[in-house]
């Protein structure tokens, strides 16, 4: 039973875990979407959502609390909190919670760890590779042709082998 086990420990000491989650939350704010294991995505989500709540409050105390949550230890933290308060907070102003979305991606090739994307619901991921296929059909096909040939080639090999046999 999972009763009263609120903290996802991720097999790390508290220091290691807090550093990891602060780093992941910072990366999420920086990039808008990060790919990580499902367990880590689920562990980051509460922190990310609390940060947005702070950003929506927007006062100086909220800003300092956010800095503390992200382990104010570098210039990166300052820029991250700046972006959080200037972009992500205002975008989610009309939303009451549920600021993040987790999309499951299936098992990782190396160790079968379930992977996932975690992203902001209100912020479109500004990434050409993502935007291109979303602009309806022709670009989507073009993008697929560019990026799937290896998979298709792998799928076609057996057919070619079969054709060769038929010809014989």
């Amino acid at each position: 039973m999972r009763h009263r086990n609120k903290t996802v420990k991720l097999g790390r000491t508290a220091e290691h875990r807090n550093a990891l989650l602060a780093n992941q939350a910072s990366s999420l704010i920086e990039h808008g979407r990060i790919k990580t294991t499902l367990a880590k995505a689920k562990a980051v989500r509460p922190i990310a959502e609390k940060l947005v709540t702070l950003a929506k409050r927007g006062d100086i105390h909220a800003r300092r609390t956010a800095l503390a949550l992200l382990h104010n230890n570098s210039t990166r933290t300052a820029t991250v909190v700046g972006k959080l308060f200037s972009e992500i907070g205002p975008r989610s102003a009309t939303r009451n919670g549920g600021y993040t979305r987790i999309i499951k991606l299936g098992p990782r090739a190396s160790d079968s760890a379930p992977m996932a994307y975690i992203e902001w619901v209100d912020i479109a991921v500004v990434d050409e590779t993502i935007v291109a296929p979303e602009t309806k059909k022709p670009p989507a096909k073009a993008a697929k042709v560019k990026e799937v040939p290896a998979a298709e080639a792998a799928g076609e090999k057996p057919k070619r082998a079969a054709k060769a046999k038929k010809e014989e």
Partner: peptide
Amino acid sequence: PACGYYKGRQVLTVDA
């Protein structure tokens, strides 16, 4: 994993 669609929208691009 083949086309990157989930719930009616493109969520990732499939790389080779």
